[in-house]
């Protein structure tokens, strides 16, 4: 019987999981997938994953996940190299897609921030040349962006599956409220609390509202959101504009600025 899936002899796609400045939590999500990851490993060739492998190949890669953001010359060098070496480059996690917490530095005086973390700059790695922390798409072309702090394992699996099936990957693109409502969680915003749900890309199955904690926005905003109205709703719940702006700055300040919010 012929069927559309009849497999031709082919070489497994070469996959890399690389990291620049960040906390490594996004990579861990992938390694914690365990059984399903092992299943996938039969279909891919994980040629570089420095966190878990001793021997790691340089490119070319068919698919390269990059977590973290550009915060130093060294980061930028690595990123540019991986971009050149990769057919498909994925920004994996909110540092990579939106700048995340390190990106707050953009909105503050850089020296003040550095002084607060590295007293007398003694903790700074020798020879490190810091750059303004920015998401990777500010520097190289990104094929797919999957946000999240950390992103969800299902988003990794779905993307790899779709690419293996030679599909144009579908990336979840609905607000947190959708999954929250489907799970029949009592609305925190309605309850007078702080929740950024309507602004933020879901895919997390409303993890935080599910444990009675308002969405803090770790996935960053959707493209088509009604920001002024959500700001009004939050203010009506007694959350000051200043605090709301701090929240928006936390994970995706640059993106919110691009969507018209003045954060500086």
């Amino acid at each position: 019987m012929n069927n559309p899936f009849k497999k031709e002899e082919k070489i497994k796609p070469k996959v890399a999981i690389h990291s620049i400045t960040g906390c490594a939590g996004c990579q861990l999500v992938i390694y914690f997938i365990k059984d399903k990851l092992l299943e996938l490993l039969g279909e891919i060739d994980l040629v570089a994953a420095p966190m878990i492998k001793g021997k790691n190949d340089e490119g070319p890669y068919d698919l390269c996940f990059v977590e973290g953001l550009v915060a130093s010359e060294e980061d930028l060098e690595h990123l540019k190299k991986w971009r050149e070496q990769s057919k498909v480059l994925v920004a994996w996690g909110t540092c990579a897609t939106h700048g995340n917490v390190p990106g707050i530095k953009i909105f503050m005086d850089e020296k003040t921030v550095e002084a607060a973390v590295y007293k007398n700059r003694t903790g700074l790695k020798k020879g490190l040349k810091p750059l303004t922390p920015t998401p990777i798409e500010e520097h190289v072309k990104v094929d797919f962006s999957i946000s999240g702090c950390p992103p969800e394992e299902i988003e990794f699996l779905r993307l790899v599956k779709h690419l293996l099936l030679q599909m144009n990957p579908v990336i979840y693109n609905e607000p947190v409220c959708v999954e929250c409502t489907k799970r029949e969680i009592k609305c925190l915003l309605e309850d007078g609390k702080e929740c950024l749900g309507p602004l933020i890309r879901g895919g997390c199955d409303a993890l935080c509202p599910g444990v009675n904690h308002g969405c803090t926005g770790c996935h960053g905003p959707l493209e088509s959101v009604n920001i002024p109205q959500v700001m009004k709703l939050l203010e009506a719940n007694g959350i000051s504009e200043k605090l709301v702006k701090q929240r928006l700055q936390k994970y995706a300040g640059l993106k919110f600025e691009k969507l018209g919010v003045k954060l500086k």
Partner: peptide, 11 residues
Amino acid sequence: DLCVSCQRCTI
């Protein structure tokens, strides 16, 4: 102007 496209009304 008031709609935030959260989809709760349809769900």
